[in-house]
């Protein structure tokens, strides 16, 4: 069916790109379950490395999961009312605020981490606590939560729906609870999955903010790449894939759904 030369060329480029992205991923998966990577798969398959990873890095994995959940809770508490406020008060001030909180999308995490360290690095109680890393994660994921909800809210006639509820006797809080939150659900779900996915994979900020006693999953990965044998590094990467790929797929599904509703 791909008769023409142009199509053949396009197909070649597409397949090459797929190979470039997929082959190293598969190699990493394979290396994680191979007895001796240098000798090849013929040396046999094993779960030994994965178990090794579990012994070495279980704390990091749990810390990352815990951080992701905490990050989700904080971004919901801050982001949901904020998205509503921004949707109800459109104007240059809201635009400015939205632009400002989106800075962490543009400014490299390294720079943000330096800024946080400059201001709070001397507060040792805070600096060495997990909440310091949490602040970095919230900073980075909050704009995704806010925008995801805002997109859904902006697509519906929120003002009239609320006026309708008000004319039936609903107070501002009742309107928020009964009308705004249920109708924003697709955006909340997409935002929540994005926040969890990004938080689990966050490295740039975390590397600067972490302490030797508080290593997250990606920090542990960097650690294993630098100091462990290839099989363990691969097995750890495999564990990460197992966590992140289903989350990514759920996130893409939820975002597509929210976007359909927002149109």
């Amino acid at each position: 069916m791909f008769r023409s030369k142009t199509k053949l060329l396009q197909l070649t480029v597409t397949l090459t790109a797929c190979a470039f992205l997929l082959i190293p991923t598969l190699m990493s998966v394979l290396a994680g379950v191979t007895v001796n990577y240098f000798k090849g798969v013929s040396s046999g398959l094993t779960f030994k490395w994965v178990l090794n990873v579990w012994e070495l890095y279980a704390d990091s994995i749990f810390l990352s999961l815990w951080l992701a959940i905490a990050c989700l809770i904080v971004t919901l508490i801050i982001g949901l009312p904020a998205a509503y406020g921004l949707a109800r008060h459109p104007g240059w001030l809201s635009r400015l605020l939205e632009e400002f909180i989106s800075l962490p999308l543009a400014v490299p995490g390294l720079a943000l981490a330096l800024a946080l360290l400059q201001l709070y690095g001397t507060l040792s109680g805070f600096r060495t606590s997990w909440t310091f890393i949490l602040v970095g994660h919230v900073l980075y994921t909050l704009p995704f939560m806010v925008r995801s909800i805002l997109a859904v809210l902006a697509a519906m006639d929120l003002k009239t729906l609320e006026e309708g509820a008000a004319s039936l006797g609903a107070s501002p809080w009742q309107r928020f609870r009964d009308i705004v939150v249920p109708n924003a659900m697709p955006g909340i779900l997409a935002g929540a999955l994005t926040v969890v996915t990004l938080s689990i994979g966050e490295f740039n900020l975390t590397w600067m903010l972490h302490t030797p006693y508080l290593k997250t999953l990606p920090v542990g990965l960097a650690d294993s790449y630098a100091s462990m044998r290839l099989e363990i590094a691969s097995a750890y990467t495999l564990v990460f894939f197992v966590l992140i790929v289903p989350l990514l797929m759920a996130m893409q599904w939820a975002s597509a759904r929210a976007q359909r509703i927002a149109q």
Binding site: L21, L22, T25, T197, G201, E202, F203, N204, P218, L221, A222, Y225, T237, F240, I244, V245, L247, L248, M251
Partner: peptide, 9 residues
């Protein structure tokens, strides 16, 4: 797929 891969990975 690589959308969710951090730079280190």
């Amino acid at each position: 797929l690589p959308l969710a891969f951090p730079g280190v990975v």
